[in-house]
Simulated scan of single mutants.
Amino acid sequence: MSESTLHSMHEKRRRTEALIQAHRPALLKIARRLCGTSGMDPEDLVQETLERALVHFERLEDKGVEAREAWLGATLTNRFLDHCRRRKTEARAQQTLGAVQEQETSLEGAAREAWERVPDAAFQEAINRLDEKHRSAYVLHAQGHKYQAISRQLGVPMGTVATWLYQARGRLKQLLTPLVSGEGKEQEAGWQ
């Protein structure tokens, strides 16, 4: 690096530090008033503002002191408002997410309870009613075999195994839903 480049870098660093030294106390005072009891750290808010000022350093340096102070004050306020909006949005999202999770959990629990009441004999009968390929893949998977092992044993690609298992589950759900929903009392009697 040439001496003039080094001198230029040192000069810019000196001017940057001077800008920060001159405006930091006033920004911190504003930030403390804005943050109050919000839980936000005024120091962080000032730091973000000064980081943004460094990005626009040349433009700020060309402005007068009052214009520079106005820009820094507006930037600090906008950063504060951005944080407030983000917190508000996150809080609403948390409430919504909590409600959705509670609903899903209660629905999932109710559905699981209903499926657990399907008699073993009816479940086995439904498995027996599957096509041979679907039944073979489903039984092997239920026994704990991984897709790759099922693929080798049945002599088909793993993608085919995945498709057959998906189709088997769909068919089982179709066959057993009347029992779960209470519509199939007469079918249940025929399966036992």
Rank of each mutant, 00 (worst) to 15 (best):
L175M: 08
Q101D: 02
T163P: 07
D82M: 05
G182D: 05
P157R: 12
W115F: 09
Q94R: 08
R79I: 12
W71C: 08
H141V: 07
Q95I: 09
D41F: 06
Q153T: 04
V139Q: 04
L76Y: 10
K63H: 15
E66R: 01
P119Y: 00
K146A: 15
L60Q: 05
H10L: 15
E61S: 14
E66F: 06
H10Q: 13
L27E: 03
Q167R: 15
E69R: 07
P178N: 00
K133N: 05
Q95F: 04
A168P: 11
T96C: 04
L140Q: 10
L28S: 13
L179Y: 02
K185D: 05
R24Y: 06
R135Y: 12
M1E: 12
V55G: 11
P42C: 07
R33H: 14
L60R: 10
P42M: 01
E125Q: 14
E51S: 15
Y166L: 05
K63N: 10
G98D: 15
D120N: 10
E51G: 13
G73D: 08
G182A: 15
L45Y: 04
A91P: 02
A99I: 06
V65A: 09
R33M: 06
N128A: 14
G184C: 11
P178H: 00
C35G: 02
Y147L: 14
R15E: 09
I127W: 09
V55L: 15
E61N: 04
W191C: 01
A67V: 07
V180N: 08
R135P: 15
E61F: 11
E48V: 08
L60T: 11
R59A: 13
L97P: 00
E186D: 12
G73H: 08
L50C: 03
S106W: 11
N128Y: 05
